[in-house]
Design a protein around this nucleic acid. Structure first.
Length: 277
DNA sequence: CTCAGTGTTCAGTG
DNA sequence: TCACTGAACACTGA
C-alpha cells in the first residue's frame, strides 16, 4: 500500500469519516510487534472516549489529533492500510448478511468504532507497520527525524540544490532517504528519475543545475498527480514507467528502449539506460 | 518450495 | 561523522 499518495488518500478518507466524531469502542489485536511494546489495555484506555479533532500526515506517517494526549500515530510499513466504513455500510451488515466489503478487514490490528456508527480499521498483513502513542508526534521520533514533506514542503530550487549536493551516494538512495524527502518510496523514486532523465546511480553531488530543476519538477508532478488520482495506479498516465516496472522480465521496453533492473540504494531499481543519463 | 517485495532500523565496516 | 552493506523484521502471493 503505502507511499505518500496512498497515505494521503488514507488521511482524506479517515478525515471524512472520523473528524468531529467520538471513539466509542476500541478493538486492539494483542500484537507486540505492530504496537511496539505498548500493551493493548493502554491503547484502549488512551483512545476510548476521545474525540478526533483532525487527521494529519507527514511523509508516510499518519496521526490522529485527539482531544487529549497522547495521540494515535500510524505507519503502514509495506502492506498496511486504512479501511473505513460509514454508518450506512455497517447497517447493511447488521441486517444479517455480511457487507460486500467484509468487516472487519483481514489482518485488522486496530479497530475504532465511532459515535455515529462509522468505523476505522488499521490492517497490516506483514506486520512491518507500527502503531504508536505519542504526546506530541511532530516533536518526537520517528516523525521529528523526517525531511521535507514531498507533497507540501518541496523547498525552492536553490535550497533543494543545496540539500542534494550535501549528500553522498547515488541520487536514488538520496530520494529514498526519509530524512531528505519524506514520503518518497521505491517506485516513486524510479518514476521521478525516469521522467527527469537522470540515471539512478549518479552521485547526488554530480547533478547539474538543469538536472536538479528537472528532478524537483518531476518529484512534485509525480506526487501531485498520484495524490490527485487517489493513488489509483490504474489511472496513472500510460506514459509512466510505473505500468512496466512490476512485471520484471527481460526484453520489456518503454518508448522503444530496454528497461533494466538492478539493485541501487539497497532496493530493486527499474530504469531505462538509453533515456537516463 | 522458493523468492521477491509500495519499508525501516540497526550493527558492522570503511 | 557520514555512508554503505547486509541482515532482520514477518508474511503473502506469484
Amino acid at each position: 500500500m503505502p507511499e505518500l499518495p496512498e497515505v494521503e488518500t488514507a488521511r482524506r478518507s479517515a478525515a471524512r469519516v472520523a473528524v468531529g466524531r467520538r471513539i466509542v469502542a476500541v478493538r486492539v489485536a494483542d500484537d507486540p510487534i505492530v504496537f511496539e511494546g505498548v500493551r493493548p489495555a493502554r491503547v484502549r484506555r488512551a483512545l476510548a472516549g476521545r474525540r478526533i479533532r483532525s487527521v494529519r500526515r507527514h511523509g508516510k506517517h499518519l496521526w490522529f489529533a485527539l482531544d487529549r494526549r497522547p495521540w494515535l500515530c500510524v505507519h503502514f510499513g509495506m502492506t498496511g492500510g486504512l479501511h473505513t466504513s460509514r454508518a450506512s455500510a455497517v447497517r447493511l451488515r447488521s441486517g444479517g448478511r455480511r457487507a460486500e466489503t467484509g468487516w472487519p478487514p483481514r489482518f485488522t490490528r486496530l479497530e475504532l468504532r465511532l459515535d455515529d456508527g462509522g468505523r476505522l480499521a488499521i490492517a497490516d498483513a506483514r506486520r512491518l507497520g507500527r502503531i504508536r502513542l505519542r504526546p506530541d508526534p511532530r516533536a518526537e521520533p520517528p516523525i521529528a527525524a523526517l525531511g521535507f514533506d514531498a507533497l507540501r514542503e518541496v523547498p525552492p530550487l536553490a535550497r533543494f540544490r543545496a540539500l542534494v549536493h550535501a549528500r553522498r551516494g547515488p541520487i536514488k538512495a538520496v530520494l529514498l532517504d526519509q530524512s531528505f524527502a519524506a514520503g518518497v518510496g521505491n517506485w516513486i523514486a524510479d518514476e521521478v528519475l525516469y521522467q527527469a532523465r537522470i540515471a539512478p546511480g549518479r552521485p547526488a553531488s554530480s547533478l547539474s543545475s538543469p538536472e536538479l530543476a528537472r528532478l524537483r519538477a518531476r518529484l512534485q508532478a509525480v506526487i501531485r498527480t498520484a495524490v490527485r488520482l487517489r493513488a489509483d495506479g490504474d489511472r496513472y498516465p500510460r506514459s509512466w514507467l510505473f505500468h512496466r516496472r512490476w512485471a520484471r522480465r527481460p526484453g520489456l521496453v518503454l518508448r522503444g528502449e530496454a528497461i533494466r533492473w538492478e539493485t541501487i540504494g539497497g532496493r530493486t531499481t527499474a530504469w531505462v539506460p538509453a533515456l537516463q543519463r
